[in-house]
């Protein structure tokens, strides 16, 4: 049940990325391109995604546990630190450079594997590099 829900969620997520146009790196980069032919579509995608999730958080507060697990496993860190800030800034640089964030890149493996695969592999290498150099 849990595995099926995760697969369903990922599939719906990937389908939503393609329908919203966010699977196209050039459209994402066009959102970030304030001094070019700016394309606001990504803002609509964020709004469309945040609305159902805001409702879901309201429901979550009334639940003892999720439907297919024994407890909620949610991030509880509240501290703002340099790691968060520096990481987010770095991520933004890569995002602007390639027009890709992790979701569209992995979904892109089905659309343009020859382009998406090098990005995904480099991304995983970057993650591993960070994990293994800190501790």
């Amino acid at each position: 049940m849990a595995l099926l829900l995760a697969l369903l969620s990922g599939t719906l997520f990937g389908a939503g990325l393609v329908i919203s146009g966010m699977a196209d790196p050039m459209r994402v980069r066009a959102f970030l391109d304030l001094f070019g032919a700016w394309d606001p579509t990504l803002a609509f995608v964020m709004a469309g995604a945040i609305l159902p999730m805001a409702l879901a958080w309201r429901v979550q507060r009334r639940l003892e546990r999720p439907f297919a697990d024994s407890r909620f496993s949610l991030p509880e860190t509240r501290r703002l630190d340099g790691k968060l800030a520096f990481g987010a800034i770095l991520f933004g640089i890569g995002w602007g450079l390639g027009g890709l964030c992790p979701g569209p890149a992995i979904a892109g493996l089905a659309l343009a594997p020859a382009s998406a695969a090098p990005f995904v592999l480099a991304m995983l290498a970057g993650m591993a590099l960070h994990r293994f150099t800190t501790r």
């Binding site: 890569g94 390639g98 992790p102 990005f119 290498a125 970057g126 993650m127 994990r131």
Partner: peptide, 15 residues
């Protein structure tokens, strides 16, 4: 793509 992927990987892990 490779450079961008590497930066995205480090950045999302750190952040």
């Amino acid at each position: 793509l490779i450079v961008a992927g590497l930066i995205v990987g480090i950045g999302t892990s750190l952040g």
